[in-house]
Design a protein around this nucleic acid. Structure first.
Length: 1131
RNA sequence: AGAUCCGUAGCUCAGCCUGGUUAGAGCACUACACUGAUAAUGUAGGGGUCAGCAGUUCAAAUCUGCUCGGGUCUACCA
């Protein structure tokens, strides 16, 4: 006896997964899936390293499912896909976590705790949840190499980063400069953007804002302003008129550092003649035209200048000139608040000019932006462009420097919680008012960032930082980006593309402790600097410095070299310059994004031989075959993170893309569309989800519910639905197969029956199957797993289960082990087996389980896992579009007839004589004839008749084919459409016969072609009719006595089958049946005796007069009858 | 504030690129049927201002613009 297909009580995905997981572990299925492809074309995948200092969430499951399915798919297509895991181990989140845990702040580090101890804590915290992560990886079926991951804090990793940095340094792409960064004077530290994004950082505050007046200097650039002012100058005012630029600020304390005024080149500005509302002196002011309304009332326009006094409420004003911002460029003005400390010389440039830039808006203020390069990123940028120098009149404690007269040494905000603090901003405003230099002073409410630690306002402050000159290759990065296949496309072109267009240099510096140290040593005067590119190089420099400088220098590192590349050790190292001066390390760490962006190189580490040989890619061996990546995938939040840094480093260092395809998946929200957060308590625990519903159902749900890049509303009900609908159906189909295949001992040992010898329906399902394979492959190749999954779902449900199996049920249990039966088994087996391979990438457990169950009996594959076999390839010779089309016709026809039966309430078991189908053309008839038998048995009718218009009793309906006709007719469409609607039967049949029809339209001839209309049959007078599209079906609902008797027989069969089942008989048991008191059923029984016997596997069917108590009373079509069923003894 | 994605039935989504006249599925709901796949299945029904407004067009869920709502990223700036 051959092995049996496994049969089950019910579907239990989690227990299947436990079983498969054990099998994978035992046979090292993952390792094997890679090693069997040794020598094959590699498909390169990069794993974006997660940070293991927090628990994994459900959102990690989606991106990892995507990664996994692509890798599995490519493996099954014959590529070798190595997947090296990795861990991101540096960075602020880790440090903040440790600070919180230890109850310390940044200031404590190096004081109450040594940097050495602190970094040790970070190192311990970093992989705290690694076990949990590994557990999830395992349970969700994510195949990735966890045994040999790259870890960013390891020396080998950091060493490679250093080499890369050195490379950038050599290319002149790594430089030190000032940048304007958020800075907290109260805490005495710069703030990262991460810190600035803490909740509650932005607060609405009321600040004193001032519109300051900058006095224009008369020269050739500004002459036109003065000319206009002079022309309208009135007799009472003999002195030469004064012209001012109006500029608004919410931070008057930045005014002593003012060096420029910025206007928008395309903004319209006006010169307005008016009076200063505080001093009442006549003035001429420049501001943006669209902002006039903020300062001047419409009633005051061209008002009474002569009669203006201090008491006049309404300010008269008049526009006396107009120009674009570009015209104002380079105009000069007098410094607003000159002191000894803020002279033009000290600024070190050519200040007090009007500048142009597009960042200027006219939404607030005056359209002229007061520009203090030290205190704003935009200001700094535009200031640098024009070379106006820089003044930093505030120190790091947040107070004015010496040499600013009455403002010297005053805090610009109340940083010290001083109860007697007097707001210097008010004092500055008052001074301006008195000096005829303020046009408007008022409180202004706006949102402003505050330090999350001290709650004090942040200010933007120039700090030293190291930069990578990404802007140097901006165009190349844009160009390379165009070659990357972005999914979705819009993210690459839009979000990422715009980001590249507006790129600024990459600020690498972080003033923290736990991270990759910048490998740059400098002399005190900064004249000489060294960038170290390897451990070997550092050690040799250490020894050199030890020799030259002598004494205690580097004494801890002279013998064994440096053992840990982190702080504080590297900071203890002193190097020596060519002139014998000591060099100290630049204290910064580098941005963690550099760590992860450099993983294509650093994951392999440096090859010391290649390094010595001076290779320009001195990385360990697999690098050459593993760069660039064919595919990466992470959340959209990585667009400016990992996607960017990978791209930037690939382009900067090797003039290459780092990845060819990138999939950015969307967020996972809760079922109400809210972001998941611990605070709201709506986080979904991935472990519980997987344990309850199974990883496969979860994966399938995540993939098929929405495109990966759309945000997903995660609902457990959806997983249940997938479980029931998809896996349940597929499982049922397998159970059905196994049930009968075990009875018949089918093990695919017979020769493959040629398609030409199989029935229509077999050829149809195999054709559909191959079409499915083709479409699924196209979808996967296009990184559209959602489409692929939905296609498989539709096939399994609609085609395989609800049509093929339903229609073929009898073939499996009826009759001998004939050729037809074998064909049915072979066909269904082929479908199931192919589906296991199709779904293997998405639902790896269930697929492997099903594949194993099938293959265990047939042994068609030598491989023990579906993940080791090849992905199905569509067989064109099995595809037959006409066949698929006519089967659709059959399904539609059946559905229509069943609908009609329902309407007249005649059950399907009651046979009916015939259906009529009007055929519009010979091709349609041919198609229908081929599937007529299927339709007949499906809807239980005896015959199908075809009606042609020759029979004369179809009424046809005509309507324009808008798509075809619209192109030709355009505007006449409406009228012609109305004319077509008026066609009578004669006109329609004329058009059909001749293929065209001419009509007169607007006294112009118009020839209507047959393909420009759609003709359908509308009605068959006197019949029950139903239609869908071009297909119309009529049903003969007459139940003749003969039909009724047959119906009775079938009903009886049905009842006896039920008894068999209730009695618990085996499918193959023979029975004996006795019936009594059958009334008007007796005739049916006699007439259909052999039919009944065959159907219920009865050796005998007897009509008797009476029966004992034990007989069962049943009802058949409202006629009661007594029946007795017993097992027949085998003869 | 800018960029970007999304908005179609009670819920989850197709359809939109390439405009075409009854806007589709599944779930849920209701009724009926089927009963040798049965903790399965089928049929039918109700349920839509395709977020809103304007435009282009003979024709708009589909193309364009604006507005509103939600998400994400970037920024917070005088």
């Amino acid at each position: 006896m051959a092995a049996k297909y496994r049969e089950f009580q019910q579907l239990n995905l989690p227990s299947i997964e436990t079983e498969i997981l054990a099998k994978w572990t035992e046979h090292q299925a993952f390792e094997h899936s890679v090693s069997i492809r040794e020598g094959a074309t590699p498909f390169v995948f990069y794993e974006g390293p997660p940070s293991a200092n927090g628990m994994p969430g459900i959102h990690h499951v989606i991106s990892r499912t995507l990664k996994d399915l692509v890798c599995r798919y490519k493996t099954m297509q014959g590529y070798q896909v190595k997947r090296k895991g990795g861990w991101d181990t540096h960075g602020l989140p880790i440090e903040l976590g440790v600070e919180k845990e230890l109850g310390i702040t940044k200031e404590d580090i190096g004081k109450t705790i040594s940097v050495e101890e602190y970094n040790q804590k970070c190192r311990e915290a970093v992989l705290r949840f690694k076990d949990k992560w590994d557990d999830l990886t395992n349970k969700m079926g994510y195949w990735v190499d966890l045994n040999d991951p790259y870890i960013t804090f390891q020396n080998e990793y950091i060493e490679t980063l250093w080499w890369l940095l050195k490379r950038l340094h050599e290319k002149g792409l790594l430089y030190k400069s000032v940048s304007i960064q958020p800075y907290s004077p109260a805490a005495g530290t710069g703030l990262s953007s991460h810190e600035l994004n803490q909740p509650g950082t932005y607060k609405d505050v009321k600040d004193t804002s001032a519109v300051a007046m900058f006095k224009v200097i008369e020269n050739s650039e500004s002459q036109f302003l003065f000319d206009a002012a002079n022309q309208t100058s009135t007799g009472s005012d003999q002195s030469s008129p004064e012209v001012f630029f109006l500029a608004w600020t919410t931070t008057p304390w930045t005014l002593p550092s003012n060096l420029g005024l910025t206007v928008g080149p395309n903004i319209d500005y006006v010169l307005v003649k008016t009076f200063n509302p505080y001093t009442h002196l006549p003035v001429n002011v420049v501001l943006a035209k669209s902002l006039l309304g903020k300062y001047f009332k419409p009633e005051g326009e061209n008002g009474d200048f002569e009669g203006y006094t201090a008491e006049t409420k309404l300010l008269p004003w008049e526009i006396i000139a107009e120009c674009k911002g570009k015209t104002l460029e380079h105009c000069r003005y007098e410094q607003l608040l000159p002191y000894e400390a803020n002279s033009a010389e000290k600024a070190g440039g050519d200040p007090f000019r009007v500048l142009c830039d597009t960042f200027v808006t006219t939404e607030d203020g005056t359209g002229i932006v007061h520009t203090a390069p030290a205190f704003g990123a935009d200001d700094y940028k535009v200031g640098k462009k024009y070379g106006i120098g820089i003044l930093t009149m505030v120190d790091r404690e947040g107070k004015f420097v010496d040499g600013l007269g009455e403002f010297s040494n005053r805090y610009v905000k109340n940083y010290k919680d001083d109860a007697n603090y007097v707001d210097v901003n008010i004092d500055i405003s008052v001074k301006l008012k008195k000096e005829n230099r303020a046009f408007k002073v008022e409180k202004y409410e706006h949102s402003y960032p505050h330090c999350w630690r001290t709650d004090k306002p942040v200010l933007y402050y120039p700090l030293d930082a190291w930069f990578i000159r990404t802007t140097a290759i901006k165009d190349r990065m844009v160009e390379l980006n165009r070659t990357i296949n972005w999914k979705p496309k819009a993210t690459g072109e839009g979000r990422f593309g715009n980001w590249l267009e507006n790129m600024v240099d990459w600020n690498l510096s972080r003033s923290r402790y736990w991270g990759t140290p910048l490998p740059i040593w400098r002399t005190a005067d900064g004249a000489e600097e060294k960038c170290i590119g390897s451990i070997e190089e550092l050690n040799s420099e250490i020894r050199k410095a030890g020799e030259v400088l002598g004494g205690e220098v580097n004494k801890n590192y002279l013998h064994n070299g440096i053992l840990d590349l982190h702080k504080p050790y590297v900071d203890e190292v002193v190097l020596v310059s060519s002139k014998g001066e000591p060099m100290h390390r630049e204290p910064d760490l580098i941005d963690v994004w550099f760590d992860s962006g450099a993983m294509p190189y650093a994951q392999w580490g440096l090859d010391q031989e290649k390094l010595k040989a001076g290779s320009d890619k001195p990385f360990n061996a697999p690098f050459d075959q593993n760069f660039p990546a064919d595919f990466i995938c992470e959340g959209v939040d990585q667009t400016r993170g990992w996607f960017y840094t990978l791209h930037a480093l690939g382009a900067l260092l090797f003039d290459s893309v780092a990845y060819k395809t990138v999939v950015s998946n969307g967020l996972v929200l809760d079922k109400n569309g809210n972001k998941m957060s611990k605070r709201l308590g709506n986080v979904v625990d991935p472990f519980r989800t997987i344990e309850t519903y199974g990883a496969d159902a979860t994966r399938w749900y995540l993939i098929t519910n929405a495109s990966p890049w759309d945000s997903l509303k995660f609902d457990l009900e959806g997983i249940k639905e997938v479980q029931r609908k998809f896996f349940g159906t597929l499982y049922n189909t397998y159970q059905f197969f196994a049930l009968y295949a075990n009875v018949d001992g089918f093990a695919f040992r017979e020769a493959y029956i040629p398609l030409s010898e199989r029935p229509e329906i077999d050829r149809w399902i195999l054709s559909s199957l191959n079409t499915l394979v083709k479409d699924v492959t196209v979808a996967f190749d296009d990184y559209e797993p959602t489409i692929a999954g939905r296609l498989v779902e539709d096939f399994v449900d609609e085609h395989l289960s609800n049509w093929y199996v339903r229609l073929c049920r009898r073939r499996f249990w009826k009759g001998d082990y004939s050729a037809d039966k074998i064909a049915a088994y072979q066909t269904l087996y082929e479908c199931l087996e192919t589906i296991t391979r199709l779904i293997a990438p998405v639902s790896p457990f269930f697929a492997d389980w099903l594949f194993g169950n099938l293959n265990a009996v047939t042994g068609r594959y030598a491989e023990t896992s579906v993940h080791h076999v090849l992905y199905p390839v569509a067989d064109g010779t099995k595809m037959d579009p006409a066949l698929e089309e006519r089967m659709q016709l059959a399904q539609d026809a059946s559905s229509l007839v069943l609908g009609l039966r329902k309407k007249v309430n005649i059950k399907v078991r009651q046979p009916l004589q015939r259906i009529l189908i009007p055929v519009l053309n010979p091709a349609m008839r041919e198609q229908l004839e081929k599937v007529a038998d299927l339709v007949k048995s499906e809807v239980n009718v005896k015959e199908v008749q075809y009606l042609t218009d020759a029979d004369g009793f179809i009424k046809k309906k005509i309507k324009p084919n808008f798509q075809a006709l619209g192109k030709r007719l355009g505007g006449k469409m409406k009228a012609v459409s109305a004319a077509i609607a008026e066609f009578d039967q004669e006109a329609i049949s004329k058009l059909e016969k001749e293929g065209s029809y001419s009509l007169e339209f607007d006294s112009e001839p118009l020839i209507l072609q047959i393909h420009e209309v759609e003709i359908t049959s509308e009605d068959i007078p006197g019949w029950m009719v139903s239609s869908k599209g071009a297909l119309t079906v009529a049903l003969d609902v007459t139940v003749t006595p003969e039909l009724e008797q047959e119906g009775n027989a079938r009903e009886l069969v049905n009842r006896i089958q039920k008894i068999r089942k209730d009695n618990g008989y085996e499918l193959t048991d023979r029975i004996l049946v006795k019936l009594a008191e059958a009334g008007n059923l007796a005739e049916s029984i006699r007439q259909f005796s052999s039919y009944i016997k065959a159907e219920v596997l009865a050796d005998g069917l007897e009509l008797v007069d009476t029966m004992g108590e034990e007989a069962m009373a049943i009802e058949v079509n409202e006629q009661s009858v007594k029946v007795w069923v017993e097992k027949a003894t085998r003869s």
